[in-house]
């Protein structure tokens, strides 16, 4: 995945239930269109089929997964053991995430773990790649994971945000998937600042569905700024969903030559991702 000139990944949520038909249908629609599919890990602190099982099923279907792991639900033992299992199942790409707070989900009384944070998780995976566990003991053999992390180019304070990015890269992250990017000029400036880093930066594309959604993102998603011109386009369109796909395609087009790839989040409209990519 990381060897591609322009990496294209997309995000797929595992089902909230044991039936995987829709999940696999969507995966098959995307199979030849993307380089890898991220499988989310109890996103928004809501119970779903595990990202490990979802990734393993993708491997079986010949699709490259990105195994998302949050620090919320498992301690360092459970995470390492899941990682070794994932490796044995053919999973090679992992994305280390802090995880949404348990208070926003559907199990508010549950104990959230956070035994380690995402930067410590990256260090631990880097250790497994060298054959060493978090406890300092040796593994029989070593893993061979591509380690990824998340990045919000526009989080404030900027200096603090850059330090965190540096730490992730120092810990061993080789690729970064970012928060949704709409403001290309601001993103370009960020990429200028990090151009010497030997990491792949994969820009997040969150497909807009309506002007209302754009307003919501501006209000609630830190560091995300949908420019007024885009909101206007959505507002005046007869088919805002179609317009959202067009905007996504245009953004991807512009990002070629700026980012090392794009990560498409279609929020339930994954079957329409091929339409976006055809427009590019």
């Amino acid at each position: 995945m990381l060897n591609k000139d322009f990496i294209i990944t997309a995000e797929l949520q595992p089902p909230k239930g044991p039936s995987v038909d829709e999940f696999l249908n969507k995966a098959h629609i995307l199979k030849t269109k993307v380089d890898a599919l991220n499988v989310t890990d109890n996103q928004r602190a809501i119970v779903r089929l595990s990202s490990l099982a979802g990734c393993a099923m993708l491997v079986r279907e010949g699709i490259t997964p990105v195994f998302q792991i949050t620090c919320r639900d498992r301690n360092r033992l459970a995470i390492q053991s899941d990682l070794l299992g994932a490796h044995a199942l053919g999973i090679r790409n992992v994305l280390a995430i802090t995880g949404d707070d348990i208070s926003i989900g559907d199990h508010r009384g549950a104990k959230q773990v956070f035994d380690i944070d995402s930067i410590q998780l990256i260090s631990i995976i880097a250790g497994l790649n060298k054959g060493i566990t978090a406890g300092g003991s040796s593994l029989a053999g070593h893993t061979d994971f591509n380690i990824g992390a998340t990045l919000n180019p526009f989080a404030r304070p900027e200096e603090l945000n850059m330090m965190r990015f540096e730490k992730k890269s120092m810990a061993g992250a080789k690729f970064f998937q970012t928060q949704p990017i709409y403001d290309i000029n601001a993103f370009k400036k960020f990429m200028e600042k990090v151009k010497d880093k030997e990491v792949k930066i994969i820009a997040g594309i969150l497909v807009l569905k309506s002007a209302k959604m754009a307003h919501f993102l501006n209000k609630n998603l830190p560091g995300v700024h949908v420019p007024f011109a885009l909101i206007k386009e959505l507002e005046t369109s007869y088919d805002p969903k179609k317009k959202g796909l067009e905007i996504a395609a245009r953004t991807i087009q512009t990002l070629k030559g700026i980012a090392h790839g794009v990560h498409i989040m279609a929020m339930g409209m994954e079957e329409r991702i091929p339409e976006i990519l055809e427009m590019v």
Binding site: S118, T150, L160
Partner: peptide, 28 residues
């Protein structure tokens, strides 16, 4: 609220407040 030891999560807003409780300044 998450007890993170190496910097803030992605939930710190533009005013430096915490996503878990918007009245609380991000510890980081």
């Amino acid at each position: 609220p998450k007890g993170l030891l190496n910097g803030p999560c992605g939930g710190v807003d533009d005013d430096g407040m915490c996503e878990v409780d918007r009245t609380l300044k991000c510890a980081w």
